[in-house]
């Protein structure tokens, strides 16, 4: 669509700009200020230059939590994207079944994150939870509070439970936009269901899938509440992801300087990733038109 050049449109954007600037720019500047100082209280602070950055960048614990974070985010994508496409393909197109499955699918998305953690905390326990008890009685040695592999898998399963719906709903809306005539044409050509998927459904899904990957990657990259409630980051630090490490530093130990330096590095990584995704999306839009 052709847009008319008009710089007066800035007036329409101004409220959003001011509001977001207030909540985003001031805190961001503060973080930068903190990151170069050693702060004891309101009035005593020493300029330390890049000391905190050196400390953070050479900190083993943070590196581990960064690698753990990437591993987790990629695992989340590898499971949720195919599963979401599969669920979307199996969903009924109309009638009451469609409404019911939409509502059921959206259900996990609307549960407060800490409650999601609580649900799985209870559900996966060996003594009072159906899932943990079921696994144990099948002879599987499963205990997410003691075994770090179990804990990791539980957090992953919880995230799949929580967020696959988002991918499925996105893909479902992509599939709904395919005109029925395409399918009829494919039927006349006796196309196999694989080639229908490959040549009719997949191209239409590409746009929504990029959005799905973007949202899922970014949200899993900042995951905090669910593992915090479920495992508290343990056992050991096997399920401590980036946000939790940061929150521990900032609120737990009140190490303002290092926490700020860490925040900035974290923010820069996120900024780079979202820029990559955003550029991909806009270039795809351009190719379309």
């Amino acid at each position: 669509m052709n847009k008319t050049p008009n710089n007066k449109a800035w007036w329409l954007v101004l409220p959003v700009f001011l509001l977001v600037a207030f909540s985003a720019l001031i805190p961001l500047m503060t973080v930068v200020n903190y990151s170069v100082q050693d702060i004891f209280d309101q009035n005593t602070a020493y300029f330390v230059g890049i000391e905190w950055y050196q400390e953070i960048l050479q900190d083993e614990r943070l590196r581990e939590s960064l690698f753990r974070q990437f591993g987790f985010s990629f695992a989340v994508l590898a499971i949720e994207i195919p599963l979401g496409i599969f669920v979307a393909l199996t969903m009924p197109k109309q009638g009451w079944q469609a409404s019911v499955s939409l509502i059921l699918l959206a259900l996990p998305l609307l549960i407060p994150w800490n409650v999601v953690g609580t649900i799985w905390q209870v559900f996966a326990r060996g003594d009072i939870g159906l899932f943990g008890w079921g696994l144990n009685s099948l002879g599987v040695d499963y205990n997410y509070t003691a075994n770090s592999v179990d804990a990791w898998l539980t957090v992953l399963l919880m995230d799949v439970w929580h967020w696959t719906s988002l991918v499925a709903l996105l893909c479902y809306s992509g599939l709904r936009a395919i005109p029925e005539a395409y399918y009829q044409a494919a039927q006349i050509d006796r196309a196999s269901s694989w080639s229908i998927f490959r040549y009719i459904q997949m191209p239409k899904l590409k746009g929504v899938l990029v959005i799905a990957v973007l949202l899922r990657f970014m949200d899993s990259f900042m995951i905090y509440t669910e593992p915090f409630v479920l495992t508290g980051g343990g056992p050991g630090s096997s399920t401590t992801f980036l946000s939790q490490t940061l929150a521990q530093m900032a609120i737990g130990q009140f190490d303002l300087g290092p926490a700020a330096a860490f925040s900035l590095i974290y923010f820069l990584i996120v900024l780079l990733l979202s820029w990559l995704f955003f550029t991909t999306i806009t270039h795809m839009d351009k190719d379309k038109s």
């Binding site: 909540s23 805190p27 900042m222 905090y224 946000s243 923010f267 955003f278």
Partner: peptide
Amino acid sequence: LFFWLLSNRMAPPAVFLLPFFQL
């Protein structure tokens, strides 16, 4: 501007935690 807005959606809340509290 659009990208800047969006990057805020992607930013981890934990990053803004401390300054938010003080702001």
